[in-house]
Nucleic acid binder design. Structure first.
Lengths: 200, 200
DNA sequence: GAAATGAACGAACGATCGTGCTATTTTCTC
DNA sequence: GAGAAAATAGCACGATCGTTCGTTCATTTC
């Protein structure tokens, strides 16, 4: 009675590889990710890993997609259970805090943003698209909060989204260098001040 | 009449090398900086460049020191001509804006912070020290502004420094990905709101 | 059972990496 | 100018890089 290998064998190991690649990219960035190290980490041969992606750049793209999916699943989707408006917006930020706490040393999306901001190529383009999309989600939630009357009607969604994002960058930066506890405290205070000043 | 080469020949070419290294590090980060590429860029042999530093890590450390000196010279020192307190603090931020504008794609200090936040070693330690020092300068200027009565006496220097730094991170992030103009506008608005809410 | 399919391996490629060594050239001192 | 000292070049090393190619082995299909 041979265990009939699932038809999704390929996709399965591909996902395993991406798990390890994601972990490595958190420490060394997408540019620091090498196929040899990854193969050793997964317990496969270099060529075995390589065959799943065809090129290093495709691997990096796949990692970028993977982390994006994780971020959405961890931060955005759970917040949809909150009523639209400020509660949902605050839930997004709260989930993002938790994400930052778990990713103290190295969020791939943020390091990728700083690795590829000044280049061109497929990776740059994808990073810009992802960041723009993420910013768009923020703006949408902000707009809903205005529509619900939770935020001042004269608020500027792009402006508020910028400031929220800046605080998250600050949190991540300080958490990575000085520890999460202090950074979390500062960011929390800053957010409270932010909400207060835009609230109706 | 041979132009008597200054006795500081060594220090001179070392500085030239660092200039090029700095330019390369802005594009590829400190981790992406390689001695071979640097040597070609400078127009020297690999070993010739190498001899000036003794190891790649020492080269990276030297670049880190160099950019730190430049940042101090461009942002901090000119601001000292302003009267202490809020004017000086605002001058620091204004100079920092200019720095960010010139360094749209790649400030070495910031990329280094994200490259080394999760590691250990001499580079990590230096990055943490530099960032802490920079934050300290901010806090000092904030404290002076409070002493001068320009900021509310109940302001928290560490908190305000965090928020200022976060906005600069946001500026840099958006400038690199979406262009400086829009980012500069957002950051300017955010700073005005920040000053207003902490002013006496 | 034979043939076909697909995944992973192993070896090798040219290139580049950082780092030693030894010449050679340049500069400084007398 | 001669000799000392410093700066740079040249060459080679082991390692690793991404990538290619042919092979092996297990599974599926006929």
């Amino acid at each position: 009675m041979t265990t009939a290998t699932a038809p999704g064998k390929r996709a399965n190991t591909r996902e395993t590889i991406l798990d390890h690649a994601y972990a490595l990219a958190r420490r060394d960035g997408l540019e620091g990710l090498s196929i040899g190290t990854l193969a050793t980490d997964v317990g496969m041969s270099k060529s075995g890993v390589f065959a799943h992606f065809g090129s290093r750049e495709e691997l990096q793209m796949a990692v970028l997609d993977a982390v994006s999916r994780r971020l959405i699943a961890s931060v955005l989707l759970p917040a949809l259970k909150q009523p639209r408006g400020l509660p949902r917006l605050r839930a997004i930020v709260a989930n993002w805090f938790e994400w930052a706490r778990e990713h103290q040393s190295g969020c791939v999306l943020l390091s990728a943003a700083s690795e590829y901001d000044g280049r061109n190529g497929a990776l740059h383009d994808k990073v810009v698209l992802q960041q723009a999309g993420w910013r768009g989600e923020l703006q949408q939630s902000i707009a809903q909060a205005m529509a619900e009357g939770h935020l001042r009607p004269d608020a500027d969604t792009a402006q508020l989204a910028f400031e929220i994002y800046a605080l998250m960058l600050g949190l991540h930066h300080d958490a990575g260098l000085f520890g999460f506890d202090e950074a979390g405290l500062r960011a929390t205070q800053a957010f409270e001040r932010l909400w207060r000043s835009w609230q109706t």
